[in-house]
């Protein structure tokens, strides 16, 4: 901007003219327009993010700023059996939930992409699990999985398929499966709606051409729909992975990471250690461990977004 002033003729020194010139300059105007957004990003995203990463390298506790400890927290965590369990839990949780959500979401999208009566209503209803506040649906699942009052157990007992109680949240593997199921229920609409939008952009002429060439339903899907849907699928999957890995509410309300840490994810363990236990440095380090995975996911999605 300094250059503008130097090259400006004498009459431009009048303030109104100067502002006019700046506004007419494409580069200056661009910077000016982007600045508020950049400031918001810097204050509300970059700063907390940077602070979070920095805290991971300190031994800060609640009440004490702490000092730099290098990779101490990370080294400690790698040797910590609970943290290693959490890595396993999160991987399993995200992988199982995302794959199921993708398959079921795709199926649902294909179904509601057909013409039928009440299509709009069905599409609206489909969104419900996504719209309901997570904490509310988590509470519902908390009741569904109640060892004593579970509606599933009650039904099974009524029709004679089960006799005792089912230990949904008491057995580690069953607890993991229960939470994954709850996450799938909540996440299907995200895939379904995203993929439905993609399906509607596929031109019908392509299907007609395929039919003329003698393609059956499966071939139409595999050779027409799927290749066109793939970039969007990748993006939706990446977004969902990020959200699933960072899940907190479902876990915190239904099990708080129990039984015996079998359902702790990065987010819940970080909260437990940083806020409840007071070891902010270690909690930040736990969160920072997810970073490389998420950055990789973001890069993948960028790649596909560009291609699109």
């Amino acid at each position: 901007m300094a250059g503008i002033e130097v090259t400006a003729p004498a009459r431009a020194t009048r303030p109104a003219d100067l502002i006019g010139r700046i506004l007419e300059n494409r580069h200056a105007l661009g910077v000016l327009m982007v600045t508020p957004a950049l400031l918001i990003l810097a204050i509300f995203l970059a700063y907390p993010f940077g602070l979070g990463v920095w805290l991971g390298f300190t031994n800060a506790t609640i009440g004490q700023a702490g000092h730099f400890v290098g990779l101490g927290n990370f080294r400690y965590l790698l040797g910590d059996s609970v943290f290693r369990l959490v890595v396993l839990n999160t991987t399993l949780y995200a992988a199982a939930a995302v794959v199921c959500k993708l398959l079921l979401g795709l199926l649902l999208a294909l179904l509601v992409n057909r013409e039928f009566r009440g299509k709009r209503i069905v599409r609206a209803i489909m969104l419900l699990p996504w719209i309901v506040p997570t904490s509310l649906s988590a509470l519902v699942f908390y009741w569904i999985y109640d060892p004593t009052f579970s509606v599933i157990t009650w039904t099974l007992r009524r029709i004679g398929l089960a006799h005792g109680f089912i230990n949904y949240l008491g057995d580690p593997n069953l607890a993991r499966a229960s939470l994954i199921a709850a996450n799938i229920w909540r996440g299907i609409p995200f895939f379904a709606i995203g993929l439905l939008a993609g399906l509607q952009t596929v031109s019908t002429t392509l299907y007609e051409a395929a039919e003329i060439d003698g393609a059956g339903p499966w071939q139409k899907f595999w050779f027409v729909t799927w290749p066109l849907l793939l970039p969007l699928t990748v993006v939706v999957t990446v977004f969902s992975t990020i959200m699933t890995v960072g899940d907190f509410q479902l876990i915190w309300i239904i099990t708080r990471g129990g039984p015996a840490n079998a359902t702790h994810l990065f987010g819940t363990l970080a909260y437990q250690r940083a806020i409840q236990g007071g070891f902010i440095g270690e909690g930040a380090a736990i969160s920072a461990f997810v970073l490389p995975v998420l950055v990789a996911a973001v890069l993948v999605s960028f790649h596909y977004l560009r291609r699109e």
Binding site: P147, F165, L169, G170, R256, G258, A260
Partner: peptide, 12 residues
């Protein structure tokens, strides 16, 4: 104990 206590939180 009744089955399920391993998953009990405070309200159970």
């Amino acid at each position: 104990m009744i089955p399920g206590v391993a998953g009990w939180l405070d309200p159970n």
